[in-house]
Design a protein around this nucleic acid. Sequence first.
DNA 1: CGATAAATTGACATGGATCAAATACGGTGG
DNA 2: CCACCGTATTTGATCCATGTCAATTTATCG
Lengths: 257, 257
Amino acid sequence: MQQHTTSYGPPHSDRPPERHRLVRKLQSITDLTAEERQALLDLPMTVRSYARGEDIVREGDTPSECCLVLEGFACRYKLLPDGRRQIMAFHTPGDMPDLQSLHIGVMDHSVAAMMPTQAAFIPHTSMRDLTHAYPGLLHAFWRDTLIDAAIFREWLIGVGRRDGHERIAHLICEMLLRFRGVDLAPNDTFKMPVTQADIGDALGLSHVHVNRVLQDLRRDGLITWTNSVVSILDWEKLQKRALFDATYLHQVHEAAA
Amino acid sequence: MQQHTTSYGPPHSDRPPERHRLVRKLQSITDLTAEERQALLDLPMTVRSYARGEDIVREGDTPSECCLVLEGFACRYKLLPDGRRQIMAFHTPGDMPDLQSLHIGVMDHSVAAMMPTQAAFIPHTSMRDLTHAYPGLLHAFWRDTLIDAAIFREWLIGVGRRDGHERIAHLICEMLLRFRGVDLAPNDTFKMPVTQADIGDALGLSHVHVNRVLQDLRRDGLITWTNSVVSILDWEKLQKRALFDATYLHQVHEAAA
DNA sequence: CGATAAATTGACATGGATCAAATACGGTGG
DNA sequence: CCACCGTATTTGATCCATGTCAATTTATCG
C-alpha cells in the first residue's frame, strides 16, 4: 500500500521544504537556537507516502523509529472490540504522533492518514543521538509530549462536560491555532480533510448530530466549512461559543515567522 | 488551611516510609538501579498536609517545585466558567501529578486532595540535578508523563465511546492495577475515597446515574464498594464488562516487591 | 444528638443516538 | 464532457441512555 519511498542522508542540500515544518512546530512551543534548528534539519529520515485511511503505525507495533508528518493530515485512534472507534488526536504537518515510542515500547493505539500523507521516519537511535548532543531539544521534545497530554485533557473536558456545539466549536478553535503554529492557516482558513463521521468519532458524537451542529455554526455566521476547507468568520464569537481558552496549547509564539 | 509542614534534608535516615512509594511507583513502570533508588530517596523535599477538597496546586500557578503524593488521594481537575467540573486524573501515593511543571510553566488545571493528604514538594532544581546525574531517571520520569498521557487517552475513549457501565467498570479496573503497582491493593481491595459525584465528574456522568450503575455492578456480584473501600469480587467478569485491556498502563511489574 | 454531606429512589425531560431515505458530490471510465 | 458509482452530507422520524429535579434515607462527625 505504500506508494513511494525516499531516503535522505544527513548533510544534504535539497531537503524538501516540508522538513521545516518540524522546526516551525517546535518553535511554536519553545525557543530554538540556530544550531538546534540546523540539527533538526540534518536528521536522517526515510519518507513514505500513505493513502487516505491507511495506517501509518498500528496498535501493538513496537516501532524503532519516530514518525513525523511532513504533508497531509493524520489521526491517532483506537477501536473497541465491537468496532466503536475513538479518535484521540489530529496531527498536522510538523507533528510527531508517536514521539512517545521513544520511551514506550508497545503502541497502545494506531496512527492513520486522513488524506494522502507523507510521513518521515527517524530512527530512535538518531533521536537519542540528537537529544544527547542538544539537551535543549530533549527539553523541546519532552515539552511537546506534555502539550500533547494537555490536549488530551482538554478533549476529555470536551467529551465529558461540553455539549455538542461547544465541542465542535472548541475543536475548530484548537485546530486554527495549531495550523497557525505551522503557518498553514492563512486568512483564518485551513484544510480539515475529515469526514463528519470522523469528527463524531473524535468528539463522541454521531455523524448525524455533527452535521446538525455544523449547520447551526454556519447559519450563525461563525464558520464556513466546504470541501474540507474551514474558514473562521467570527473568531470572537466562535471562542465564546466554545468556551475556548488557548492556555492549554502552551504556544509561545502565535505563529512562527 | 495547611495543617502541618516538615522539611527533610537529603542524607537523612528517618525518612517516612511513604517516600518509598515513589520508588515503587517508578518501579512498576520501569527498571531502576540501586543507585537510582537511593538517589530518589535522597531527594530533598518539603512535606505539607492538605484537607479533603483542598487545592494542592491551582490552575494559573507557575510552580517551582514538583509535588509528590505521599499519603492520601488526589485528583486533577478543571472547572468550566459556569461551574461544570471535569476531573481528568486520580492520583495515588507515589504519583507526581504535576511532573509536567518541569517543562510547562503555567498550570492549565488544578490538583486537589480528595481526602486528608500529605504531599511532598521537590524543587525543580533538585529534579534537574537528579535527572542530570541519572539519565535513567530522566527516562523514567519522561516515561511516567507518557503513561499519564496514555491514561488520558484511555479516559477519552471512555467518555467518548463507552456507556456508563463500561466506564465505571473500566475505572475500577484501572485503579486496582495502579493501587497494586504501589502495593496498596491487598486482596484486590483498595481505598477509593471519592464521592459518587466525583466519579460522575471524572467519567462525564451525573451522580444519580453513577449511583444506579454502581448498584448494578454490586447486584451482579462484580464488586463491593462501601465506606470508600472497593473490593473486586470477580476480576474476570469485571474486565469483560469494562472491555478492559491493561496494555495502556504500560506496567512492567505487576506489583513491586 | 443534631447537622451536614452522601447515597438512594422515583418521576419526568431531553440531548443526542439510531434508523432509513434522499440528495449531493468527487472521481472515474467511456 | 457526460453517465455512473461509491462515499459523504443532509433530512425526517423515532427512541433511549442519561440528565434533571425533588424528596427520602443513610452515613459521618463535631
